[in-house]
Design a protein around this nucleic acid. Sequence first.
DNA 1: TTGTAAGCGTTATCAA
DNA 2: TTGATAACGCTTACAA
Lengths: 321, 321
Amino acid sequence: MSKPAESNATILDVARRAGVSRTTVSRVLNEPDRVSKDTLQRVQDAATALNYSPNSFARSLRSGRTGVIALLVGDISQPFHGSLAQAVVEAAEERGFGVMLYDLGHSTARLEDVLRKLPRQGVDGMIIATADDVSTSSISDAVRECIAQGIAIVTGVEQFEVDGITSVRTDHREGARLAMEALASEGLTRPAILLGDRNGPIGKQLVAGAQGATVHEVGYTFDDAAAAVKILANDHDSLIVATLPMALGAMSALTRAGRSLPVVVCEEVPFAAQVTPAFSTSAVPPDETGREMVRLVDAVINSIPLEPRALHASLTRRESF
Amino acid sequence: MSKPAESNATILDVARRAGVSRTTVSRVLNEPDRVSKDTLQRVQDAATALNYSPNSFARSLRSGRTGVIALLVGDISQPFHGSLAQAVVEAAEERGFGVMLYDLGHSTARLEDVLRKLPRQGVDGMIIATADDVSTSSISDAVRECIAQGIAIVTGVEQFEVDGITSVRTDHREGARLAMEALASEGLTRPAILLGDRNGPIGKQLVAGAQGATVHEVGYTFDDAAAAVKILANDHDSLIVATLPMALGAMSALTRAGRSLPVVVCEEVPFAAQVTPAFSTSAVPPDETGREMVRLVDAVINSIPLEPRALHASLTRRESF
DNA sequence: TTGTAAGCGTTATCAA
DNA sequence: TTGATAACGCTTACAA
């Protein structure tokens, strides 16, 4: 029986055991081609025997790379961001990255803090996934600083007026447009659209896509939407709602008022299908977005030329319309 | 105007500028008391002037500490884990830790992979937050290896039969018991309880707490619960359900069958209050659990003696009962 | 194909 | 109170 091998072996231990220099061991790990077949074998044997694995700090210290990307989300307690994070974590792992999670709690001050801290934290790249409007000048400064430090940045929607940022190409207008068309095709031609912030990066697109709908800017929460519904004019025949929490709020207020209206939500999460009535959605699935974000950030980190992929919204009919 | 100071300054740069040695600069950062007031000031000025911040890899390389904890969750797309993660991230940050996120997708194989990888990844501690039954011997081995590597481990519920693991003291029996009592106090004395796995760490406790209820082991998903409800005997007057997705599934099937039953859910998440009807819950809020987890892992990492705090379930009446 | 040796930026151990 | 100096474990010119 071999010893458990506490795995604190260093590259030097492996080198000694294989009767070679550290350089050779390092080469076996990083450029196996440059090593003779024979020594390759010997080194690999020694490595496994000692249960060796490279110290990531030492490696980072030399290479400047960490193998870590930061994921900044507006609110991880929301299913949308959870689904996104799930896809990001999975895709990142496939590419050999770990993911550090930061929750912004919808606060721009918090975002700025994180941005200021990240360069010191040592991440290769970051994904900023918030639909909030975060275009202040001090945040742009912080973002610029990150880029200057060589951190790759990917956002879910065009956010900052800063060069060197890659954004996912998601056309949210399409989501709204598809919803409008579907409603219209069943004779519902007087929809209202409820959104959190008409000047936010997503809100703008929804407004553009929902030409002809009455726009109500109500805030992002369940309560916001519930309150808004109460003062909604009676001449609407249907509702388009930006997010699932808002849709739940609207639905709840509607039910409570003894009213009922066809609803389409511009956000696709598993929960949408599980509530009663199940919500029809028109959106880009968050896992697609997440995967694309990782693909992009990986490309930027490794300076691989990229062709951002266009992500499309699709309509899923369920019970709410 | 001072120069932008690209922030790539090292400790040596600061030392030179302040006219001291690196040692002194390091002391200013780590043990300010051991430095004369005068030099302290000079060094700090130099540091800010150069926009200096310590390189975290070099620091980790020397100290063996990373300031990072890993959070392993069963399924981050579920609101419960999202809320938990939110609390964990916030509490961790308060204590100076960053959080790396790992999603297990309810897979034990995946858990083992992660456990095997983490010691090389360089984390000071880890929080394992899954309600799945993961007690296999190879997983216990992997856990032991982590502990041997000096990684602090905290779990949400007693999981592994391994020494050196700290668990949050949450009494899930209490959640179930409270639900039973509340139902009984309104004359509902023949409840069924729906849970995913009666041998899982949580399932066991729920069963123990719901003495007198008929136990149905149905699986963890929406569909599982929906299917189970269809074959539920007619002589039950109420339902206790382990998770929100399951509760939604049950409710959906009930509605579809034209039936209706009082329901209490043993999981508290914001969504529970937002669906229609809003669910009554009897559980420990996930953010409390998350905060406690971080408190514990921090204590273990810094070998501070700790008194695990008992977390209590509470009943919140809403519309479903 | 392999090895030598110089760092990467910190912190810890001595001395002074 | 301060400072030389040696690690920490790895990568990478440059030599051999």
